[in-house]
Design a binder for these strands. Structure first.
Lengths: 336, 336
DNA sequence: CTTGGCACTTGCGGTGCCCGAGTGCCAATT
DNA sequence: AATTGGCACTCGGGCACCGCAAGTGCCAAG
């Protein structure tokens, strides 16, 4: 049994490296298994019965199935740490980032370059952030600009028309009351936090205030999770032969925010790997996804990861994803 | 001569529609030219001498060269207006946009869907915008957040560490002085506008103020042009056979901000078309680019456009690009 | 100048063939 | 009982060949 798994590992590693179905002979030669091809053939037949490998056609070698990769990832491999120069490169790459947009943009680029795969990075979730400040600017007597700044560095702004004009003093009052109530509170709690605020104003202005509250809640809740950035799609083309048909469906899937968000899933700390058919989305059946959460505070407020062909170097890729997540988390903590 | 051009137009239109080299016979049949195949052959030979068409191989029909497309675009075609339902779709698509990010995101998506090509949209240039408001928030005694809001809707923010603590009253003063000086002024003029501002403060705070000014200028000038959004890359794969080799180099080029910015070029009002080898970038020699400026005020503050295979439907694509630019300009004017 | 006719070129799809890689099974060996 | 060498078998890929169809250029006649 032990030996059989050793053979599976050899098959996966060889196939990932060469992109050719691996036969019993090369397996015996290339890996230091002191065992004859015939024996390997027997074991391979068993592995095929277990559904871990298949032959694409009779006269070819074996390649791992999705299930084979699964076993490999779960039991046969260890996450490979990055090399020292790679780690230094990451540090340097993030170094000059000036704001959250910049951090996210650099991170996604970095991740795709390190892994040579398509990288996906989600902006820190708004609902998991807390309010750092709410600013209210008057553009015209009946036109306000609201700026919501979260402690994760995210900034959302919105313009709204007021039903009635608002004078400067009301504005000042509104601003201070808004901040007094909400700063430091979770955005998810804002509906609760701001409830009844309009009652602290005169009857006349209450409609205006309700309007303002409405827009703030919109900013905080409705659009909150939806920002995702992708980079390195050209890597898809480089691995093109790996995808059953063409890269088209994959590219298509990557353009839908909804798909991406589902792909990243809930932000959790530990690393997750989804292999081929384990994915719900049919367009992605020939791809694998590696994701992990990240966030400045230690617990995950967003997810990042990569997507590539199922035939990928899992140990290295997993190492890269986890390292980048760690670095960007630390960077967010220190800088933004 | 007139007739020869008519034949070129027929070749382009036919080839764009069918993606097959077009021969003299189908040309005589499909288009209402009351002229025999033999005559057409003579004219085609002439067109080939002029470098407007070529035969991929001896026993095949002719296809247009880059130069052929050029002549077609410049002299033989008229921009095709969108259909009424398409126009309505555009309106609807932009309808619910809540802020500039949203407008840009919707626009790029829209453009790629309408044209079935890769769409590229540049954010309104900061240096061509004017200041709407500068906000200064205190996060800690020695930590400020600066928010710069432009009249084109763009919002940039930056956090900075101060060399010394800054008290609340200085902050208020700074805020009002900053806005008094700069609101309504062009961002490009900010270095001039803010010059000597620090002298209006006590010696002690002058270093702080200088720091703040420095960061504002950074926001306004240094990173100012660089935001570009791309959508619809999956359309590349759909047209894959059109690209000489693979889509890889094109995808690669589309990932470099610098390349994209050069592609879009200076924001100018009229529409520009670059065909195949007219492009400097070698990776894009099998593509054509259609761009035009847009902006809320009537004159262009940014550029948008599409990129696709040289074998594209120029009249329709040009119509779509120009229409979308018009619509988004109007939308920006009204809403943001 | 236009047109029909005709000989010529050439890529493409289909066919048949061989070769090599790899297998499964069996009998012999340890 | 597990391992191994041997052997017959399968099958896909590459290659050469062939005929076809499309399309051309040129020429001579209208």
């Amino acid at each position: 049994m032990e030996r059989r798994m050793e053979i599976l590992r050899a098959i996966v590693e060889d196939y990932v490296a060469t992109n050719e179905p691996v036969g019993s002979k090369v397996l015996a030669a290339r890996h230091g298994l002191s065992i004859s091809p015939a024996t390997i053939r027997n074991e391979m037949a068993a592995l095929e019965d277990e559904g871990l490998i298949i032959q694409p056609h009779t006269s070819a070698g074996r390649i791992p199935t999705d299930l084979g990769y699964r076993v490999f990832v779960d039991r046969l491999s260890t996450v490979k740490p990055l090399s020292a120069p790679e780690r230094r490169a990451i540090d340097k790459f993030l170094e000059g980032a000036v704001d959250l947009d910049d951090v996210v943009a650099r991170t996604v680029r970095l991740l795709s370059q390190v892994t040579h795969q398509v990288a996906i990075v989600q902006y820190p979730s708004l609902t998991r952030s807390a309010v750092r400040h709410i600013e209210v600017l008057s553009l015209a007597p009946n036109r306000l600009m609201l700026v919501l700044i979260a402690d994760t560095g995210r900034v959302e702004q919105r313009i709204l028309e007021l039903p009635r004009d608002m004078d400067e003093s009301t504005l000042t009052l509104l601003r201070s009351k808004l901040n007094a109530r909400s700063v430091g509170k979770k955005l998810a709690a804002l509906p609760e936090t701001l409830k009844g605020l309009e009652e602290e104003f005169t009857e006349n202005t209450a409609t205006n205030i309700r309007q303002v509250i409405g827009v703030i809640l919109e900013m905080a809740i409705e659009r909150s999770e939806e920002r995702v950035v992708v980079s390195g799609t050209s890597n898809l083309a480089r691995h093109a032969p790996d995808f059953n048909e063409s890269v088209h469906p994959v590219l298509e899937a990557l353009e839908e925010q909804v798909v991406l968000l589902r792909l990243l899933g809930e932000a959790v700390d530990e690393m997750k790997v989804k292999i081929g058919h384990e994915q719900e989305n049919k367009k992605l059946h020939s791809t694998s996804v590696i994701t992990t959460g990240y966030g400045p505070t230690g617990d995950a407020v967003a997810t990042l990861g990569i997507i590539g062909p199922t035939r990928m170097d899992y140990p290295t890729s997993m190492g890269a994803v986890s390292a980048v997540a760690r670095y960007v988390s630390r960077f967010l903590q220190e800088e933004i």
